[in-house]
Structures are given as C-alpha cells and as structure tokens.
C-alpha cells in the first residue's frame, strides 16, 4: 500500500473507458474483463494515448472500441502479428492484444505459438469461453470433446482440447497466468503484472458465455486460487501444469527469457549510400 495522497490528476479506471457501449450480452464475463483492463491501466497510470489494444474477430475482440486508448480491430486470427509489427517499430508504446479462444487458438493458433517464441514485449489476453459466440455457439479449440450442443459438432468435437498454457510455456512465452472474470480485481492484478513483466505475456481469462454456455455460470464456484507463487523455472511450471485442472487461478510462470528487441540505429547517413553497391567502377 503506497502512502501517496490521491491526486486529482490521477487517472481513474473510468478515464480509460470510451463512450461506446458494448454489444455483449448482459451477464457476459467480458464486461468484467473490460473493467479489469481499465483498472490495470489506472493502476499503472498509463497515458491513454500511449496504449494500443489490438484485437481480431469475435465477441471479446470488440474490446478496443470500448477503451479510450488507441485500438485496432483487425481480421480474424491475426491480431498478434499486427501487435508485433507495431511494438517492434514503436517500442515506446504499451501494446496489448486481446481476443477469444477461437480467434487466438484456432484460426490464429500458429501466430500464438510464434508470438510466444518471438517474445516481443507485449501482453496477450485471451477471454476463454470455450465457444464461438458471434456465429451462434460452435465448439472452439478449448471446448470439451463431449459437448454436444455445437451445431457443427452434434456428437461432440471428439477431439482433444487445446491447452493454451502448455503451448505458451512450450513455445517460449515469458509470463503465463490464468485469471477469472468472476474476480475483476484479481484479473486486473494479473494484467498489470503481465504488462510490467518484460517479453511476451500471456493471460488466459476464464470468461463465461452465458448465452451459449449457461452452465459456465458455475465456474464461479469451481475456480480456485493456485496454492503456489509463480516460478521462473520452466521445468517447475511444466510439472505444475501436469496437475492443472483448468481452473487454477494465478500466475504460473514469470520467466527470464530475453525479449526480442531489435536495434533501430541508423548506420548510414542516407538511403543514397546504398547505391554504392550497384555502381560500376569503370
């Protein structure tokens, strides 16, 4: 607890919200995640104009427009490359990427792995509800194999669910955590830690879809805090994941992997010097 007086100049969570009203269903976990984003930004007192939130397509990917920061609502599955291109060329900005489980782990699955590998200093928040909401309730990569209410998979997906934390750890992410929309303050804390940790930070937030997965309202009763603090040792993190029931909440891994920070120092005076390689010395 800092003993600093509340200054009138300090930005409050509501200062990070835009005037645009969400299209999400009342009861959706994403409202809580939106609140967590604003609380995290206020906690860090980020300049709104120096923050960029980038998303793909899906319910949760609507989040940039609801924030009073710069945003990019890109195409389905490709938010991470947009974020990487931006952060590499504008290291002065705080870059956050947000989206859902279908966007991030299915159509964007390869970008997820490669972004973990590249370890650019940015934060990726996936609001995981194990379903495609905007197309009316199809199974997603994180859906249980026996969920039979997806109209494209009436007998269940019968395929193994994607395990984002394992993939993130194996691929090289430098910060890995799980939060729950049932606790927006806790999610805000994890997002704050994620932004402040160097390199690529991945945060899975369990965020129920009350329209297509009403049973997920029970997640509130199922989630439980992880009994241990974050480790910097990938091997320890991997062992913990073996006993993960998908509902442990907390920060799993805070690594020391070196972020990708290319240099940007001009070495020639102008583009004209590049000509010399082509010039014929007659």
């Amino acid at each position: 607890m800092d003993q600093t007086s509340t200054s009138t100049a300090a930005l409050k969570p509501k200062d990070y919200k835009s005037d645009t009203k969400p299209v999400w269903c009342p009861g959706c976990g994403d409202f809580s995640v939106l609140s967590a984003f604003t609380k995290a930004m206020a906690a860090m007192q980020l300049d709104p104009e120096r923050v960029v939130v980038i998303s793909g397509i899906g319910c949760s990917s609507r989040i940039p427009a609801y924030l009073n920061v710069y945003g990019f609502h890109a195409v389905h599955g490709r938010a991470l490359p947009v974020g990487i291109g931006l952060k590499i060329t504008r290291p002065d900005l705080t870059v956050m990427v947000a989206g859902g489980d279908g966007d991030g782990f299915s159509i964007g699955g390869n970008h997820f792995m490669q972004a973990c590998r590249r370890n650019v200093d940015m934060t990726y928040v996936v609001m995981d509800n194990q379903v495609y909401g905007m197309t009316k309730g199809q199974a997603s990569p994180t859906t249980e194999p026996d969920w039979e209410r997806g109209k494209l998979t009436p007998h269940g997906t019968r395929i193994n669910p994607f395990y984002p934390l394992v993939i993130a750890l194996a691929s090289g992410a430098n910060f890995i955590a799980r939060a729950s929309s049932n606790d927006p303050n806790g999610a805000a804390r994890v997002i704050t830690e994620a932004v402040q940790h160097p390199g690529f930070s991945f945060v899975q937030i369990l965020s129920p879809c009350i329209t297509f997965r009403p049973e997920q309202r029970d997640w509130k009763k199922i989630v439980h805090p992880a009994p241990v603090v974050a480790t910097a040792d990938p091997a320890v993190a991997a062992r913990r994941l073996m006993t993960d029931d998908n509902f442990f909440i907390g920060t799993l891994f805070k690594g020391e992997r070196v972020p990708f920070t290319p240099e940007f120092e001009p070495r020639a005076e102008s583009a004209h010097e590049l000509e010399t390689a082509f010039r014929m010395s007659a």
Binding site: G83, G85, L86, K87, T89, R90, E265
Partner: peptide
C-alpha cells in the same frame, strides 16, 4: 539496418502482411 529500419522474418504471409499493418498504424 543501414538506414535505421528493420526487416522481420515472419511465420507466414498471413503474419507478414499483418505485421505491416501494425507497423504502418504506428506511422512507419
């Protein structure tokens, strides 16, 4: 590199074109 720019090898063309969009959004 000589003029203060950078080339990044991406994982595929889907990534490369979207990296351009991100960089350009930032003004580059």
């Amino acid at each position: 590199e000589q003029v203060g720019g950078i080339l990044v090898q991406a994982e595929d063309e889907l990534a490369s074109v979207n990296q351009l969009i991100g960089a350009s959004f930032g003004g580059t």
